[in-house]
Design a protein around this nucleic acid. Sequence first.
DNA 1: AATGGGACCTGCGCGC
DNA 2: TGCGCGCAGGTCCCAT
Length: 268
Amino acid sequence: MPELPEVETVRRELARLLKGRRIAKVEVRRPQVVQGEPGEFAAALEGRSVRALLRRGKLLLVELSGGKTLAVHLKMTGQLVYGERSERSEKSRVVIRFTDGTELAYNDQRLFGRLEAVDDWEAMPFVSSLGPEPFHLTPRKFREMLRGRRTRIKPLLLDQHFVAGIGNIYACEALFRARVDPAKPAEKLSDAQGEKLFREIVSVLREAISCKGSSLDQYVRARGNKGTYGKYHRVYGKTGTQCRCCRTRIVRKAIGGRGTYYCPSCQR
DNA sequence: AATGGGACCTGCGCGC
DNA sequence: TGCGCGCAGGTCCCAT
């Protein structure tokens, strides 16, 4: 799923749905998706109430009473779905039941995602290694961050140590909109290109959030419904369709091992 | 420092 | 119809 816009959507929706609810019981059906001993994981959460929902990059944080936080990384196919007991599926790997009988299910087809109960989420190694949030940067700062970076721009955008929250879809879409070749070394972007790319990153992320994310395969919102940004994708998954600017066919090519969609004629 | 490959998993669509 | 292959929105770890 889940790049910044999808995680942010789930964060906003779960904030309304979960705040104030008290956890009665945590059922770990697949031990490998929780960090540490399942029994300890469950015990750390049970009896606590939901205070707030936060996000850092693609990591979702459920802040609980008594100083604990549930950290959730959805990776490729994780879902957090709130509802009634009957809404569980066979892909529900962890089920968190609240005292009123409603549930938060963690569903995951591929079992890559992780749930962890922590005391200090900001001290998590994953969190302290993250780059800045895109929304906290400016075009000028972003452009300066590209200086001296000889790596190709697209893998750099996907590097969470560089900037947090951008994934494969939004990297491709932002590069297309900025007309930047995904294989171009980052330091070779002109100042204008660097700033343009940053503005396109921010606008594509904002537009995707306002559409509640892109539901291509597994990603769903907090009540199980889909995000609609996929219909606005200009290149991602669009191999063979015509570029909206120049009619050249969009191609897919692996760059840094990841499928990359772009217009070979517009993007320079 | 940067890049490439494999690992972690399941399941879908495609070509033969 | 069935099978094998490639591919999938993420991240980590290792080798070069």
